[in-house]
């Protein structure tokens, strides 16, 4: 079975205080797909994403990555296969320099330093940030921070990318570069976002979440024309469509 496959079966999760956050989530995402997870605030998007690399583990249901069940025994393999980009790049860029930050993952893999350097340089080149290697993270712009955070993830050579609000806080030009970059990847991509125009440009499939459930699963065109569904889930059609009508 492909390394690039990710599947959820009957996933249910309650917060420690008892609130139901995810309720019977099931889906199967195949090799190289780019899938958006959309929904209003508090719909459960981030909670779902945290299950995909085992950051959260629930009592009921399971997540399988490349046919491995996510659990404490498989955590290392799962995290090598699933790269996770967090919403606030400041949370992800914790090392003192860009190079060391991107090298954090490869070093944890136990690679020799020569290979670490190779991976870091390749990853930085992919996101167009080779020139930033020596900088401390606080001297980066928002778009540069995002690019470096992505480099840190792909330096681990994952087969699946999970991205939480990747376009959040970017200026239009940086956002466009990000979309082009994500389009160029051959990884399986799962993107949680409020940026519905990014979904149109990037994704071939959309999961709509509402109150911890998956309300709809389909092609963007079909989802975004279903006004009744969008209203129910605190959403509206992408801005580029609204202008046209």
């Amino acid at each position: 079975m492909s390394r690039h496959l990710i599947e959820a079966r009957g996933l249910t999760y309650r917060y420690p205080d008892g609130t139901l956050a995810l309720s019977d989530i099931s889906f199967r995402i195949g090799h190289g797909e780019a899938v958006a997870v959309i929904g209003g605030n508090g719909a459960g998007k981030s909670t779902l994403l945290l299950h995909l690399n085992g950051s959260l583990q629930s009592g009921a249901g399971e997540v399988r990555v490349a046919d491995l069940p996510v659990g404490n025994a498989t955590l290392t393999q799962i995290r090598n296969a699933v790269g996770m980009l967090f919403q606030d790049p400041d949370d992800q860029l914790f090392m003192g320099s860009v190079f060391d930050d991107v090298a954090f993952g490869p070093r944890n893999l136990g690679l020799p330093e020569s290979e670490v350097a190779g991976r870091v340089n390749d990853a930085l080149a992919t996101v167009g940030a080779r020139h930033l290697a020596g900088r401390p993270p606080y001297r980066l712009s928002g778009g540069e921070k995002r690019a470096v955070a992505i480099a840190g993830v792909i330096a681990m050579a994952p087969s699946i990318l999970v991205l939480d609000e990747p376009s959040d806080g970017l200026d239009p030009a940086a956002r466009r570069r990000l979309i082009n970059l994500l389009r160029s990847f051959s990884h399986t991509r799962i993107v949680a976002t409020h940026d519905l125009d990014l979904v149109l440009d990037l994704c071939s499939r959309v999961l709509v979440m509402n109150r911890g459930r998956i309300e709809a699963d389909g092609k963007p065109q079909a989802i975004f024309t279903d006004t009744e569904l969008l209203a129910r889930c605190q959403l509206e059609p992408p801005l580029s469509w609204q202008r046209r009508s």
Binding site: L50, F94, F104, R107, N108, M156
Partner: peptide, 18 residues
């Protein structure tokens, strides 16, 4: 959140920086 981000990239309690 930082701890989660570190775990996601294979952190095992040991800071490695050669």
């Amino acid at each position: 959140r930082i701890h989660l981000a570190m775990l996601a990239r294979g952190f095992d309690g040991e800071m490695r920086g050669p």
